[in-house]
Amino acid sequence: MTLTAAPPRTTPTSAPRPPRRRLRYAGTVAVFLLPSLIPLVLFTLVPMAGSLWVSLHEWNLIEPMRWVGLDNYGEVLADPKTRAAFLHTLTFIAGYLPLVYAGGLGLAMLLNRAMGGRNIFRAIYFLPVITSWVVVALMWKWLLNPASGIVNWALGLLGVEGPGWWTDPTWAMPSIILASAWKDLGFVMIILLAGLQAIPNEYHEAARVDGASAWQRFRRITLPLLSPSTFFVVVISLINGFQVFDQVHVMTGGGPGGATEVVVEQVYRLTFQYGRAGAASALSWLLFAVVLLVTLIQVRVQRRWVNYGY
C-alpha cells in the first residue's frame, strides 16, 4: 500500500461528519445493532415490563385482567407456601453447594499434579455437565428407584435397607441434591482446577522449606489463593440454586406431598395449574429480588475473604 499525497482519511470512529455521511453512519450503526436489539426488546425488555404489569393484576390468562395493585405481593409474602418454597430451595442449596464444592475441590486437587491419563479423567468428570438436566434426572430417578433401583440393591448388599428416595418426603430432596451434585461436580472441578493451576508452585515450595505441614499449606496457601475461583463457584451456584427447576420437575414434580416444592416450581404451578398469573409474576420478582440481594451481598463481602493479586 503506498499512500503519499492523499489527504488523511478519517477513521470510522472520528466524530464530526457532513450530514449525508452522518446519516450513512447512523444506518451502519443500526444495521449492526438492530438484529440483536429488536429481539432483545421483544423477547426480554417487553416481557420484563409485562411481568411487572401482570404482577399488579389478578389474571387467569383467560378472563380480562383485574387490577389489584400490590395485593399479589402482599399475598405471596404472607402465603406459608411461599415460605415453604423458599425453605425447600434453601435446603437444596445447603445440601448441594457444600457437596459439589468439596467434591470438586477434592477432584481438582487430585488432578492438579501431573498424572497419567489426567486429560481422560478430566473429560470423564465433565461428561455429566454436557448432559441435559432431564436426562440426568431420569437416570438418577432410575438409579434411586426405591424397589428396583440399583443403589438400593447395592445398599442391600451392605446390609442397609435403602430409603424410598424420591418417593419419601424425607429423602426426596436428598435425591435431587445427589443428582444435581453429580451433574455439576465436573464443572466445579474444572473451575477450581484452573484456579489451582494459577497458583505459583514456588509458594508451596517455600512453605515446605519452612516446614509447613500439608494441612497448613492447604489452609494458608491453597484456600486463600483459590478464593477468586471459590467466589465464582459460590456466586454461580447460588444464582443457579435459587432457580432450580428442571431436575425437581422431572424427579418429583415438587412432591411427594409438596416436600420438594421449590420457588420456580411454585411459579410454574401458580401460572399454569392454578391460573394465578399475577401471583406467579409477583413471586418471580420476589425470587429475583432475593437472588439480586444475595449476589450483591456476596460482592460486598468478598473483599473480606477473596484474595485477588498474589
Binding site: 432457580q243 401460572t271 429475583f288
Partner: peptide, 17 residues
C-alpha cells in the same frame, strides 16, 4: 441488566406474547 433477569420472570408475559 437483562443478564440478571432470570427466565422465570419472563415466562408468563412471553407465553402471552
Amino acid at each position: 441488566a437483562t443478564l440478571m433477569v432470570p427466565l422465570q420472570v419472563l415466562i408468563v408475559p412471553l407465553f402471552i406474547e
